[in-house]
């Protein structure tokens, strides 16, 4: 049963990744499609524009790559102290899940593309845990770090023309969204159900000093560590000498 749903899910994901930017009467464009993370980067916005059928609403989803998240579960010890009482792993969780809509999602749509949809995708181990409760807490944790967000009233529409209407949304890219590949999907929604979709990839890429430091830290960690300690030592000495020469100490 589980294997069957996984096959279905994998096929769906492959399909979603390779669907063209215009499909099922839905189109999507991103500007820029590549976000550059430089020295003074503090997050940015990406403008998503496109079209949906004139009688549909648009919902835009920014989704990060899947990952396994290892967390600590909190519980009471001796009926008094709150502590980490065990490990719990959430498998195949999207690193980022940001939903932009023009209103709150109705339950039918929430179970198709909202946070509730993730409950069927994410596997929690060890098995036998209270899945509903842990999933709720997991979403709370992700929302707290602003990697899972929901923005209502975020989409504006243009006038209907030739059976379709344009939409526009400003996607917030927070500074703690790491470099990597993301998928932006636009959904056409009618009567609380998805009737069409389009997708585009979005890249976040380190450039300049952050790229160089990251390369050094992961490529030559020993050299990086020695430089980091050496620079700190030199800075300490320099400040010490500067302060000392100004008098103060004897």
């Amino acid at each position: 049963m589980i294997k069957k749903s996984w096959c279905y899910l994998t096929l769906m994901l492959i399909f979603l990744i390779y669907i063209p930017a215009t499909a099922f009467g839905v189109s999507l464009n991103l500007k820029p499609q590549e976000v550059q993370i430089g020295t003074f980067y503090d997050g940015t916005t990406v403008e998503a524009t496109g079209t949906v059928p004139a009688d549909c609403q648009a919902v835009v989803l920014v989704r990060g790559a899947g990952e396994d998240v290892h967390l600590k579960k909190k519980g009471k010890i001796g009926g008094l102290l709150w502590m980490n009482i065990g490990d719990v792993t959430f498998e195949h969780t999207p690193r980022v899940y940001m939903i932009y809509a023009d209103a709150d999602l109705p339950p039918s749509l929430d179970s198709e593309i909202g946070f509730s949809a993730l409950k069927n995708v994410i596997k929690i181990s060890p098995a036998g845990e209270n899945k509903d409760f842990l999933f709720k807490e997991f979403v709370k944790l992700k929302k707290h770090s602003a990697l899972y967000t929901f923005h209502a009233n975020a989409i504006s529409y243009g006038p209907a023309e030739g059976g379709s209407r344009s939409f526009k949304v400003s996607l917030i890219i927070p500074p703690h969204m790491h470099q990597g590949s993301y998928t932006v999907q636009a959904f056409a929604v009618r009567d609380g159900h998805v009737v069409g979709k389009a997708a585009k990839p979005m890249q976040l890429k380190l450039t300049g000093l952050p790229a160089k430091l990251s390369k050094l830290a992961f490529g030559h960690p020993l050299l990086y560590g020695i430089i980091a300690a050496g620079v700190a030592l030199a800075a300490g000495l320099l400040i010490g000498v500067l302060f000392g020469s100004k008098g103060g100490a004897h």
Binding site: A229, A232, G236, G240, A249, H250
Partner: peptide
């Protein structure tokens, strides 16, 4: 890493004293 800098600066100042 930053404590390396702060403690160098502090050690130097205390050394003088």
């Amino acid at each position: 890493n930053q404590i390396v800098g702060a403690s160098t600066s502090g050690t130097l100042a205390h050394w003088r004293l």
